[in-house]
Design a protein around this nucleic acid. Structure first.
Length: 469
RNA sequence: GGCGCAGUAGCCAAGCGGUAAGGCAAUGGUCUGCAACACCAGUACGCACCGGUUCAAAUCCGGUCUGCGCCUCCA
């Protein structure tokens, strides 16, 4: 299995630190509002990575944090006349709801920054002791960026270029810094803000230190995969490396994975441009599973454009897969309980090619677009190689194959079979009778009536199928 | 200014040296009372443009054009 590593700018064979186990850390959202559609991309993408690793038999420890103390949260709290804790707790709950809709499985642990302050104080202290950090006169603690020789190795930046860039857009409030590149590990509180006591001042942690500490606490000093959006490469992940490696003296993460951005109508999403969408508002119009399928329809390192018609195309494509599974279920209801035939066995062997194609795609840096193509080929094969003549066993195995490939992508292709609604069944029977008597007006009336109830009918060769909208 | 990415049919999107996957949409057909589903058929003499390397290039190299990202809170 190959993974593109931002650190080396190349695809590398994946070799976990410990055989059979994978330690994975994915930077989570800052919870000051509902998550937006852009936040959904890394969640879906890395959840899929996790699912595939588990499919391959790895035991995955998946850690994803919630940043629950931050300027934006505090600002939101002030606006609403409440406290930061209320805001963050509320949006963590809402975020989890959205994740559920997107079929993103909960992480092994979702640590909260505010609950990891002791670890942060400890790491900052160690960095100060090792000479990698210093406290300014106002109590702010800075990281001594130039002291870390390898600074820039992830983002492939030259430290001197960085400084030149900084001069142009110099920010105020950095008087206590020894060097403009130094970044904050701990900052003093302002009036009314949440704070914790520390040896340097009452205050709160900088953003970067959180992830270094949480990764270390829950995964250890060395981890396999560290992931997030590409915008995090610099400075967030670069700074994490500086902190963790200076503190622990070991390579922090072996593989760094970054997803590209999701744009809206070919433009970067932003509130000012008026093209900002939360997952919540999208979920009111579209099944979030469609959004998930849409996100996976492109490779995670390519920019992805989001628009109504593109989502519509994904919806139709996904429908094709679901229809195929429904059809198999329909056939299974009346299938014969005989021994699988030689011909059927032969056909099942042929489907292995699609499974292999799927796996090959996933093994190549999680090429979900190609994997989906293989899935579609399997679906087509299923559509053309099944009938009411087939045995239960054959149909069951075929269905299972489709379902497993869907499962890795987080696609639920089979809705729980609800109890047959007697009213619906009765209407369908009535319609069938009407059709027999060539009373098509009555038949169509019943079909419209069912449609209003959210039931879609299909007259197949094998009989009438129905499904909920 | 520095660093980097991308340009493949109407749309989306794989392919990354061996002669263009897959999906959506559209068209014609099979099936069907109609519809829906499904299936079948054709659908890029060509992969932004110009050169070069090679027996062979969408794939490698050089240049041009266009779009985009990061360098600053940001998935």
């Amino acid at each position: 299995m190959k993974i593109y590593n931002t650190l080396t700018k190349s695809k590398q064979e994946f070799e976990p630190l410990e055989p059979g186990k994978v330690k994975m850390y994915v930077c989570g959202p800052t919870v000051y509002n509902y998550i937006h559609i852009g936040n959904a991309r890394p969640m879906v993408v890395f959840d899929t990575v996790r699912r595939y690793l588990e499919y391959k038999g790895y035991e995955v420890t998946y850690i994803s944090n919630f940043t629950d103390v931050d300027d934006k949260i505090i600002q939101r709290a002030i606006e609403e006349g409440t406290d930061a804790d209320t805001i963050s707790k509320r949006y963590i709950i809402e975020c989890k709801k959205d994740m559920e809709g997107l079929q993103v499985r909960p992480a092994t642990i979702h640590p909260l920054a505010t609950e990891e302050i002791p670890g942060m104080l400890e790491m900052i202290q160690t960095l100060i002791e090792k000479g990698y950090a210093y406290a300014a006169s106002d109590g702010t603690v800075y990281y001594r960026t130039r002291k870390f020789q390898e600074y820039g190795k992830l983002s492939h930046k030259n430290i001197d270029d960085l400084q030149a860039g900084h001069r142009e857009i110099k920010v105020t409030g950095s008087e206590g810094k020894e060097d403009e590149l130094d970044f904050v590990l701990w900052k003093p509180k302002k009036e009314g803000e949440p704070y914790w006591t520390s040896p340097w001042c009452d205050g709160r942690p900088g953003w970067h230190i959180e992830c270094s500490v949480m990764a270390k606490k829950y995964l250890g000093e060395e981890i396999d995969i560290h992931a997030g959006g590409e915008d995090l490469i610099f400075p967030h992940h670069e700074n994490e490396i500086a902190q963790s490696e200076a503190c622990n003296g070991k390579q922090f993460a072996k593989y760094w994975m970054h997803n590209a951005f999701l744009n809206i109508d070919n433009k970067k999403m932003s509130k000012s441009a008026g093209n900002f969408f939360t997952v919540r508002e999208i979920s009111e119009k579209i099944d979030l599973q469609v959004i998930r399928f849409f996100i996976l329809s492109a490779h995670y390192r390519s920019p992805l454009n989001f628009s109504a018609e593109l989502v519509e195309a994904s919806k139709n494509g996904l429908e094709r897969i679901i229809t195929a599974v429904e059809h198999l279920n329909y056939l299974l209801e009346n299938a014969q309980n005989k021994v699988i035939t030689e011909e059927e066995k032969e056909k099942l062997i042929q489907t292995e090619a699609f499974v292999r194609k799927y796996e090959t795609a996933m093994e190549d840096d999680f090429n979900t677009a190609d994997a989906i193509a293989a899935l579609f080929e399997l679906v087509k094969y299923s559509n053309t190689n099944t009938s009411s003549e087939n045995t239960k066993e054959y149909l069951q195995i075929l269905k299972k194959k489709i379902l497993i490939l869907c499962e890795i992508l987080g696609i639920v292709a089979e809705k729980e079979t609800c109890d047959l609604d007697t009213e619906i069944e009765a209407l369908i029977a009535e319609r069938t009778a009407a059709k027999k008597e060539k009373d098509f007006a009555r038949a169509d009336a019943i079909r419209s009536q069912l449609l209003e109830m959210g039931i879609i009918l299909k007259d197949t060769r094998e009989g009438v199928q129905w499904k909920r909208k």
